[in-house]
Simulated scan of single mutants.
Amino acid sequence: MFRLIKLKPPHGWNAVLWELGIVTLGVLIALVAQQLVDSIHQRAEVRELMAALRAEMADNRARWEHIRASDPCTVHRLDALEQWNATAPRGAKINRAYRLFLWNQHSGAWDLAKTSDTTASIPLRERLMFASLYDAINNWRQMINEENANTQALSGLLATADQPENRNQIAYRISLARGYVNRRKFNYDYMFRRWDALGIAPDDSQLTVRANDKLLCEPLDRLS
């Protein structure tokens, strides 16, 4: 025959409930403290990642600002070359006539961000804005390769324009060069609107080359 044993804590049930409450409260405090530490750590990682992205974009914007500032002189030089090609004697040639400087763009911070879980904590609007800018930068790399190739070809043809087969190709290359400039201009509004929306100003402190925006405005007769 079984007998039910009535349990009675030495110090009473109130003491047990008190100790249980203290333990539970301690666990809750520990959990809240851990969540607070995790939250602070996550916010710090987000700030660091955002700072890296914004710094990279500030550098990229400075490069685009330089290219945009040089466009009027680029068009001026193309006008001058077109006039020269139409009027210069058949045996004439001109060296260093189209030395266009186009900056490359960086995306290392974004490549890192895409592999980081921290990126998910960046507000969606800003993530989408950065993604669209970096997509445009990837497109720019292809564009700059094409334009640089045409720049080299045009410069080479002008330097050997005393050869009839080269002189005949100059007008075509000038036409391509104008198209590349117009293509750049078409993209400016897209890029600069997004930089402005993110509050990113140009920062040229990291640029290692000081290119002259007005170089192509110099008269052709100053070239050797």
Rank of each mutant, 00 (worst) to 15 (best):
F101K: 10
F101V: 15
L102C: 09
H106D: 12
H106M: 08
S107T: 08
D111F: 07
K114A: 10
T115F: 02
D117S: 10
T119H: 04
A120L: 05
I122C: 04
I122M: 02
P123T: 00
R125Y: 03
L128R: 07
F130M: 04
F130I: 04
A131W: 03
A131C: 02
S132F: 08
L133Q: 03
A136I: 02
A136E: 14
N138F: 06
N139Q: 15
M143Y: 14
N145Y: 01
N145L: 12
E146W: 10
E147C: 01
N148C: 06
N148K: 13
A149R: 12
T151S: 10
L154T: 11
G156M: 03
L158K: 00
T160V: 03
A161V: 00
D162K: 07
D162N: 11
P164V: 07
E165M: 11
I170P: 02
A171V: 14
A171T: 14
Y172W: 01
Y172T: 10
Y172E: 05
R173E: 05
L176T: 11
V181F: 09
R183P: 01
K185D: 04
K185Q: 13
K185A: 09
F186N: 15
N187Q: 12
N187E: 06
F192M: 04
F192D: 07
F192A: 00
R193F: 03
R193S: 12
R194Y: 01
W195D: 02
W195L: 14
D196I: 03
A197W: 00
G199D: 00
I200Y: 06
A201P: 02
P202R: 13
D203E: 04
V209E: 15
V209F: 14
R210P: 12
R210V: 14
N212L: 10
N212T: 12
L215Y: 13
